[in-house]
């Protein structure tokens, strides 16, 4: 079984790399062959040159750093908030009953629409961007934790109770560890959503971050710059996602390997 898994990994990786090469080739020569002008789709080499130019002249590293810092801050704070509220509500059916309509309403409301409001409140600083990210990360994390707490096998709780477990012992020994796999599923979603929140905040107002470069490039009709910003945003999001996966692999090491793979 291990051998077949191994060969699957080799075949899969080969195919992935092949797809990447096909994609990059198509990007480089496709637009020219199809007579698509460079201001619609600039070829790969033009985007690469633009990236080098931006790195040297436009402070690409600085803007990427700002965005990454906002994403990280928003993601961590949003996750902490979402998880804490999820645990609190999960343990109090009354609180859940009372709060559920508001939670639902806030969940339905498009969080990115709050971005202009936050900028009005806090100006062109990094804080409104972090706040949008917090808001957007909050929900998937909270909902996953809440569901996890509610679906813990009551027989497990009874088992602990039969051993005379106190409420805190039931939480720390059963409910909390049982909630970790869904929590991490929420964190995975949250890590990618944090980027969305930050970018929207930066697009709406400010003079720093990849979102700012995005709208600056748009204003200059510099399509290559827009592409560079998109690629960098994807990298930032990918790194955040990878970070979650790495922590998850450590924390949930007891799960069968199959359950940990996949996205």
């Amino acid at each position: 079984m291990n051998g077949s898994n191994h060969s699957l990994a080799i075949r899969g990786t080969t195919l992935s790399v092949a797809l990447l090469i096909v994609f990059l080739t198509a990007w480089q020569w496709g637009p020219g062959l199809l007579r698509i002008p460079p201001f619609i789709i600039p070829p790969l080499s033009a985007v690469f040159n633009e990236a080098v130019r931006m790195w040297n002249v436009s402070g690409l590293a600085f803007h990427t750093g700002i965005t990454a810092a906002e994403v990280l801050a928003g993601f961590i704070l949003g996750s902490l908030l979402g998880a804490s509220i999820g645990y609190l509500i999960g343990m109090s059916p009354t609180a859940e009953f009372a709060l559920s309509p508001y939670i639902l309403a806030l969940q339905i409301a498009p969080k990115v629409a709050f971005a202009p409001l936050f900028i009005l409140w806090m100006g062109f600083t990094i804080y409104p961007k972090i706040l949008v990210a917090i808001l957007i990360v909050f929900f998937p994390v909270m909902v996953n934790v809440l569901t996890a707490i509610r679906t813990v096998d009551p027989d497990l709780i009874n088992l602990a109770r039969a051993f005379k477990a106190k409420r805190a012992q039931i939480f720390w020994r059963i409910e909390f560890p049982a909630s970790l796999p869904p929590l991490f599923a929420g964190l995975r979603i949250g890590s990618t959503l944090a980027v969305v929140g930050v970018v929207v905040g930066e697009l709406v107002g400010g003079n720093a971050g990849l979102g700012y470069l995005l709208s600056f490039g748009e204003g200059q009709a510099n399509t290559a710059m827009v592409f560079v910003a998109i690629v960098m945003l994807t990298l930032v999001g990918g790194l955040a996602y990878l970070l979650v996966i790495l922590i998850e692999l450590r924390v949930l090491h007891y799960l069968p390997k199959r359950a940990q793979m996949g996205f």
Partner: peptide
Amino acid sequence: FMLQKDLLLPW
């Protein structure tokens, strides 16, 4: 007590 379900904690 012991039930039909083993109730082992996977972690």
